[in-house]
Measured scan of single mutants.
Amino acid sequence: GNIFIKNLHPDIDNKALYDTFSVFGDILSSKIATDENGKSKGFGFVHFEEEGAAKEAIDALNGMLLNGQEIYVAP
Protein backbone atom coordinates (compact mmCIF):
# COMPACT_ATOMS: atom_id res chain seq x y z
CA GLY A 1 0.00 0.00 0.00
CA ASN A 2 1.15 3.50 -0.82
CA ILE A 3 0.90 6.39 1.62
CA PHE A 4 1.51 10.11 1.27
CA ILE A 5 3.10 12.17 4.05
CA LYS A 6 3.13 15.97 4.14
CA ASN A 7 4.22 18.77 6.49
CA LEU A 8 7.55 17.03 7.05
CA HIS A 9 10.25 18.98 8.89
CA PRO A 10 13.10 19.98 6.51
CA ASP A 11 15.56 17.90 8.58
CA ILE A 12 13.66 14.65 7.91
CA ASP A 13 15.61 12.75 5.25
CA ASN A 14 14.92 9.48 3.43
CA LYS A 15 16.54 7.44 6.22
CA ALA A 16 14.49 9.13 8.94
CA LEU A 17 11.32 8.61 6.90
CA TYR A 18 12.16 4.94 6.40
CA ASP A 19 13.06 4.43 10.07
CA THR A 20 9.82 6.09 11.24
CA PHE A 21 7.55 3.98 9.05
CA SER A 22 9.42 0.65 8.95
CA VAL A 23 8.05 -0.36 12.37
CA PHE A 24 4.68 -0.97 10.65
CA GLY A 25 5.91 -3.45 8.04
CA ASP A 26 8.21 -4.13 5.11
CA ILE A 27 8.80 -1.06 2.95
CA LEU A 28 9.36 -1.48 -0.77
CA SER A 29 10.32 2.18 -1.27
CA SER A 30 10.34 5.50 0.56
CA LYS A 31 11.14 8.88 -0.94
CA ILE A 32 11.10 12.50 0.14
CA ALA A 33 10.44 14.99 -2.64
CA THR A 34 13.34 17.40 -3.09
CA ASP A 35 14.05 20.46 -5.19
CA GLU A 36 16.93 20.74 -7.66
CA ASN A 37 19.29 21.58 -4.77
CA GLY A 38 18.33 18.47 -2.81
CA LYS A 39 16.32 20.45 -0.24
CA SER A 40 13.20 18.76 1.11
CA LYS A 41 9.88 20.00 -0.25
CA GLY A 42 8.21 18.81 2.96
CA PHE A 43 6.38 15.80 1.60
CA GLY A 44 7.10 12.22 0.67
CA PHE A 45 5.80 8.76 -0.08
CA VAL A 46 6.18 5.33 1.48
CA HIS A 47 5.22 2.11 -0.33
CA PHE A 48 4.56 -0.82 1.99
CA GLU A 49 4.58 -4.42 0.80
CA GLU A 50 1.24 -5.02 2.56
CA GLU A 51 -1.89 -2.86 2.50
CA GLY A 52 -2.52 -3.60 6.19
CA ALA A 53 0.81 -2.05 7.15
CA ALA A 54 -0.06 1.12 5.25
CA LYS A 55 -3.42 1.41 7.02
CA GLU A 56 -1.78 0.82 10.40
CA ALA A 57 0.82 3.53 9.72
CA ILE A 58 -1.88 6.00 8.66
CA ASP A 59 -3.97 5.31 11.77
CA ALA A 60 -0.96 5.54 14.10
CA LEU A 61 0.97 8.47 12.63
CA ASN A 62 -1.53 10.89 11.07
CA GLY A 63 -1.48 14.00 13.26
CA MET A 64 1.58 12.91 15.24
CA LEU A 65 4.54 15.19 15.87
CA LEU A 66 7.73 14.37 13.98
CA ASN A 67 10.63 16.72 14.77
CA GLY A 68 8.09 19.07 16.37
CA GLN A 69 5.82 19.30 13.31
CA GLU A 70 2.40 17.69 13.01
CA ILE A 71 2.50 15.37 10.01
CA TYR A 72 -0.36 14.47 7.68
CA VAL A 73 -0.44 10.83 6.60
CA ALA A 74 -3.00 9.55 4.07
CA PRO A 75 -3.45 6.94 1.32
Rank of each mutant, 00 (worst) to 15 (best):
G1C: 04
N2K: 02
N2C: 00
I5H: 01
I5M: 11
I5P: 02
K6V: 00
K6I: 01
K6M: 01
K6Q: 02
N7S: 11
N7L: 07
L8F: 11
L8Y: 01
L8S: 02
L8M: 11
H9I: 13
H9S: 09
I12S: 03
D13C: 09
D13A: 05
N14G: 11
N14Y: 04
A16L: 10
A16C: 15
A16H: 05
L17T: 05
L17P: 01
F21W: 05
S22H: 10
V23A: 08
V23R: 05
F24C: 04
G25P: 00
G25D: 02
D26S: 12
I27S: 00
I27Y: 01
S30I: 03
K31I: 06
K31R: 06
I32M: 13
A33H: 05
T34G: 11
T34C: 14
T34Y: 15
T34M: 15
T34S: 13
D35I: 10
E36K: 14
E36P: 12
E36R: 15
N37G: 13
N37T: 12
K39I: 11
S40D: 03
S40L: 08
S40T: 10
S40C: 06
K41G: 04
K41E: 04
K41W: 03
K41Y: 06
G42F: 07
G42D: 04
G42N: 15
G44E: 00
F45I: 00
F45G: 00
F45W: 07
V46P: 01
V46M: 03
V46C: 08
H47S: 03
F48H: 02
F48T: 00
E49H: 10
E49G: 13
E49R: 09
E51Y: 06
G52Y: 09
A53F: 12
A53D: 13
A54G: 12
A54L: 06
A54S: 12
K55W: 13
K55I: 12
K55V: 13
E56V: 10
A57Y: 01
A57G: 06
A57L: 07
I58L: 11
D59G: 10
D59T: 10
G63W: 04
G63Y: 05
M64S: 06
L65F: 13
L65P: 12
L65V: 13
L65E: 13
N67M: 06
N67R: 09
N67Q: 12
G68N: 13
G68F: 08
G68H: 15
G68V: 06
E70G: 12
E70R: 12
I71R: 01
I71S: 03
Y72A: 09
Y72P: 00
V73H: 01
A74H: 12
A74P: 01
